[in-house]
């Protein structure tokens, strides 16, 4: 399963997904969000949604010196927090900026593709794709 950004043109910039991601982690506010919605450059031009796109061969994992980022079945990565030394190389390696930073733990925060945010996207910008996972397994 992976989270897909289906159509950013439908995005109204409500940021419900960001708040949902944080709630899913048992928090409130925005510090822990693993998804970002920002305007393209002024709200008149619409929005971009930044979130891990579950690469099959993730560059962030390739640059991790301690193997704290492990490729996840179905794409993307899983963080082994104990191994992570907080060097931030992964952030630099992700060209779409989808590695967020936890200032509290000084470690990366990356979407785990749980799909919770998609449930709170009122305009079908986000969707949890199940078929994709099967496709990868084949």
């Amino acid at each position: 399963m992976r989270l897909a950004v289906v159509d950013t043109e439908r995005c109204v910039g409500c940021q419900q997904s960001m708040f949902a991601c944080v709630r899913r982690q048992g928090e409130a506010g925005l510090a822990k969000t693993c998804i970002a919605v920002r305007s393209v450059g002024g709200t008149e031009r619409g929005f971009v949604v930044i979130v891990c796109r579950a690469c099959d061969d993730p560059p962030c994992a390739k640059v991790c010196p301690t193997e704290a980022l492990v490729s996840r079945k179905g794409g993307g990565v899983r963080l082994d927090s104990e191994k992570c030394i907080g060097c931030g190389h992964c952030q630099g390696a992700c060209p779409i900026g989808a590695i967020f930073w936890d200032e509290e733990t000084n470690k990366p925060m990356i979407c785990v593709h749980c799909g919770y945010c998609a449930k709170y996207c009122p305009h079908t910008v986000l969707e949890l794709e199940r078929e994709e996972a099967e496709h990868v397994e084949r």
């Binding site: 109204v12 910039g13 409500c14 940021q15 419900q16 708040f19 619409g46 709170y120 009122p122 305009h123």
Partner: peptide
């Protein structure tokens, strides 16, 4: 285009 305020699903 339709837009929303932050943390409002209504737009």
């Amino acid at each position: 285009r339709r837009l929303a305020c932050s943390h409002c699903p209504v737009a």
